[in-house]
């Protein structure tokens, strides 16, 4: 039996971990970029970004001051036995994590009247039902510098592969230096408008180097990665070869009349943490 307390405690720990300890794949990608980059200013900046995550981990300080809106992916096993209210428990965990972890509370109660809730709740929770009896919780604190650069393109079903690629590249160009490059791109292709943006966000929880689920999508992701890195935006816009850390694509069947392409950009502080109960 999974209790409310267990869920809240797990979420609390994941919030603190995700915000203070950078994911191993992101650390690796930053170090690799640092070794590969030729541009002097870009190298200096990448070096500082590596030092930044080291300081954050050592001192248990947030890697970035924008500790995000808390996005939670709750994958619930069909046979899981949960006692109590899972949504309430997740939000209790987020509130406790942001308080105890000295994380910034950035959530306002209403998008128009805008009063800070002072707890960073409510979290944005995506529930999914999966086979089995376990519950997997993934926390993705999403800063809004990069979230504001999200894009949805509702392409025609007859769109060429080049149009698909150009849409994604256009999203990177429009973000330019503003959303803290080098970026990690989450791309969602197919479904409806909502599903595509959901998949784009979820793709960020997959490791850098996942690329896609099938050979076709892996090839597409790698091509986008190469083209993105030729844009010469560079770390924090200082130019150079490192504009992207990676590209992950998730896809879903879609309607005969459309081809949704969603892009969710993450800054270089790509944070997430998971646990299974």
């Amino acid at each position: 039996m999974i209790t409310e307390k267990q869920i809240a405690e797990t979420v609390k720990k994941l919030c603190i971990k995700a915000n203070t300890i950078l994911r191993p794949d992101v650390k690796k990608a930053l170090c690799k970029a640092c070794a590969f980059e030729k541009n002097k200013n870009a190298r200096f900046i990448l070096g500082a970004l590596v030092e930044n995550y080291k300081i954050a981990e050592k001192e248990s300080t947030p890697i970035c001051q924008d500790t995000g809106i808390t996005v939670v992916f709750a994958e619930i096993g069909q046979q899981a036995k949960i006692k109590g209210d899972i949504g309430k428990s997740i939000n209790n965990g987020v509130a406790a994590g942001y308080e105890e972890g000295f994380l910034r509370k950035s959530v306002v109660n209403d998008p128009l009247s805008r009063k800070n809730t002072n707890t960073n709740t409510p979290a944005v929770i995506y529930y999914d039902f999966v086979p089995g009896k376990k519950v997997k919780l993934t926390i993705l604190p999403k800063g809004f510098g990069s979230e504001n650069k999200s894009k949805l393109y509702m392409l025609n079903p007859t769109a060429s592969m080049e149009e698909v690629k150009k849409s994604v590249i256009n999203a990177i160009k429009e973000a330019g230096p503003d959303a803290c490059p080098p970026y990690m791109l989450g791309v969602g292709i197919g479904g409806d408008a909502g599903k595509a943006t959901f998949l784009a966000k979820k793709a960020l929880t997959y490791k850098i180097g996942f690329w896609g689920e099938s050979a076709n999508y892996k090839t597409l992701a790698k091509e986008l990665y190469k083209r993105g890195n030729r844009l010469n935006i560079g770390p924090l816009g200082a130019r150079g070869k490192t504009t992207l850390l990676g590209v992950n694509i998730l896809s879903f069947p879609t309607h005969i009349a459309g081809l949704p392409v969603a892009v969710n950009i993450s800054c270089h502080v790509l944070r997430s943490a998971s646990a299974t109960l």
Binding site: A48, L49, N52, T61, I63, C64, G145, L236
Partner: peptide
């Protein structure tokens, strides 16, 4: 000036 976006722990020091 554009300073180090996302390097919040580094700048804190």
């Amino acid at each position: 000036f554009s300073t180090l976006g996302g390097a919040a722990a580094y700048l804190k020091k």
